[in-house]
Simulated scan of single mutants.
Amino acid sequence: MLGWALTFLIIALVAAVLGFGGIAGAAAGIAKIIFVVFAVLLLISLLANALRGRPPRA
């Protein structure tokens, strides 16, 4: 998912350099949304792993 965010960020930068303002803005918006979703899922995953813990070995 982070790869998709980086892909849309690159698309936005290329579109901005070429002067396509609407496409650049849309791609940048999509990249931001995907990055936030990625960050939230990462935090949930880290918390779930920390709370689950590991049982002691016998």
Rank of each mutant, 00 (worst) to 15 (best):
R52W: 12
A58H: 13
S45A: 07
V37C: 05
I34S: 04
A27T: 01
G25Q: 03
L51Q: 12
V17C: 00
A48M: 13
V37D: 02
A26D: 00
P55H: 11
S45L: 10
F20M: 10
F38S: 13
K32M: 12
L41K: 05
G21Q: 08
A50R: 01
L6Q: 15
T7A: 07
K32I: 15
L13R: 02
I33S: 15
F38N: 12
L13N: 07
G53A: 15
K32S: 14
A27Q: 07
P55F: 06
N49M: 05
V17F: 07
R57G: 08
V17R: 09
G53E: 09
R57D: 09
F8E: 15
L9F: 07
P56T: 08
I44R: 12
L13I: 01
G21C: 04
G25N: 10
G19H: 04
A39T: 10
L47G: 07
A48R: 11
V14E: 01
A48C: 04
L42Q: 11
A15C: 12
A24C: 02
M1R: 13
F8Y: 14
N49W: 10
L2T: 10
A5Q: 08
L2Y: 11
L47R: 04
L9M: 12
L47K: 09
R52G: 03
L43R: 04
A5P: 00
A24G: 08
V17P: 00
L51Y: 05
I10Y: 09
T7N: 11
A39F: 11
G21D: 04
F38W: 13
A15T: 00
A48H: 08
A16F: 01
A50T: 10
I44V: 14
L43F: 11
V40R: 12
